[in-house]
Amino acid sequence: MRVIIFSWEYPPRVVGQLAEYVNGLSALLVKNKVETNVVTFDDAATGFTQEPTGVKTVRLSNPVKTHIGVLTWVLTLNQEVERAAANIYHQAGKEIDLIDVYDWHFIPAAVTLKNGLGIPFVYSVESLEDHRSPASNTPYNMAIKSIEWLGFYEADAISVKSQWMKDEITRIYKVPSEKITVISSSTSSNQGIRDTVKLYKKVAGDRKNER
């Protein structure tokens, strides 16, 4: 099984807790015989690296340096994420089982890759714009929400860490609850990583059956 993880933070670039989480998860996936590629952002140390954990990483910088806001920054960076993922896909003989996307930032790339190349994706939700910016409906917040909505609509499966988040996504975005899987702790228990691999196999298998 071969997967690509999209995360906008990954060591050594640590912004919040997501970087360490993705680092731990990707190492565990390799131990469970899943070939794991991580595509992430780093403006200083760019390029391809084989990590000591066995994870293959691609660190990308933004092709456009001057920006008027987070949205334009994210949307141009997405093109590099898309390019890196397409390169992995073509170099791997067009065999990628799925993409696992952490939060909204790289949803645009995952959506295009799915529509163009038929690679399924899992949307792993850490947080929602509705909670980060409560009761904010400016065009800026609405744009981020529309990208989250697009992710929920296009994703083959949605992964969350708590029943509360599952209920919130169902409440706010009216997503069918059977599309959402709760995996409480992928990195701190054997059960967690087993559930993650199980979800990956289900998504990859469903997609193969469709073809």
């Binding site: 008027i68 949205l71 065009p139 697009l150």
Partner: peptide
């Protein structure tokens, strides 16, 4: 959209 340029990138998506 917040502004025209941001709309352009969202439209491109």
């Amino acid at each position: 959209s917040p502004d025209f340029a941001t709309w352009v990138y969202l439209m491109n998506l």
